[in-house]
Amino acid sequence: MPAILYSYSEHIRSSWSIQLQRTKNLVAAVFSGTFLSVNSASLHSSELAMSLAERIRKLREEKGLSLEELASRAKISKTYLWELEKDTDGSKKPSADVLLRIATALSTTLADLMSLATVRIQDEVVQLSPSLKEFQTQMVAQKTPLTPDDLRDLASMKFRGGQPQSANEWHQLYLLLVNSTRKGKA
């Protein structure tokens, strides 16, 4: 595996890689004033008043998952998940990693799991490198075009100041991203 992809692979393997980058972008947008709106109106007042325990249980039941299934998907013990769901007074303080794994297993965001207000960031123009354009063209030719979100995420990825230099390296990075995000949804 080329050295740059090994570095990308190590970076992506962490449970925070993609979510952390989006969170950094969100924080930067909020502090720079480039966000457009705060979306707390989409949350009903009853959802805002719910404890984390109630929200986890509600989302789990909406997805039709048993405690055991969610615990397995989130890679936490069934007992710990049960304790979190029974913790209506908020005495349990799960780590950010555990919360992220639960949110991913429920196919939701940390903001939704925590009933936090969200912001919508203005669309920004992203520059595509020649090698990323070549990869995009290859994917179209294979009848598997990249989504605008995929392109934006790939184009904004930098690790130690670098990006893949060839269409093949972009393809390997893309496969790592796809595989790492599907693991949490399986």
Rank of each mutant, 00 (worst) to 15 (best):
V125I: 15
K158F: 09
F135P: 07
D153E: 15
R101D: 02
S129C: 11
E68R: 14
R101A: 12
E83I: 04
Q136L: 05
T144V: 13
A155R: 03
V98A: 10
P148D: 08
L81I: 05
K86R: 13
L84E: 06
L128T: 01
T104I: 02
T79M: 15
L106T: 00
Y80C: 11
G90K: 13
E62Y: 09
P94M: 01
Q136W: 04
P145V: 09
T108L: 00
W82C: 11
E83V: 04
S95Q: 09
K93Q: 13
K92R: 15
Q136D: 06
F135A: 05
A103W: 01
A71R: 13
E62P: 08
L67K: 14
S66T: 13
T79D: 14
D123G: 12
A71Q: 12
M157A: 07
Q127M: 03
S95C: 07
D97H: 06
A111I: 04
Q163R: 13
R101Y: 01
S91P: 04
S115A: 15
S107F: 01
S72P: 07
T118C: 05
E68Q: 15
S77A: 14
P130N: 09
A71M: 11
D97G: 12
G161N: 10
L100A: 05
P94W: 00
R160C: 14
E134D: 15
T137R: 15
G90I: 12
L128K: 03
L146Y: 12
D89W: 09
Q122I: 02
Q127P: 01
D89T: 14
Q165D: 11
V140P: 08
T108Y: 02
D112L: 02
E68N: 12
F135E: 08
T147R: 10
R73F: 04
L65G: 08
S131N: 06
E68V: 08
I102N: 03
D89F: 09
Q163T: 08
L116K: 02
D153M: 14
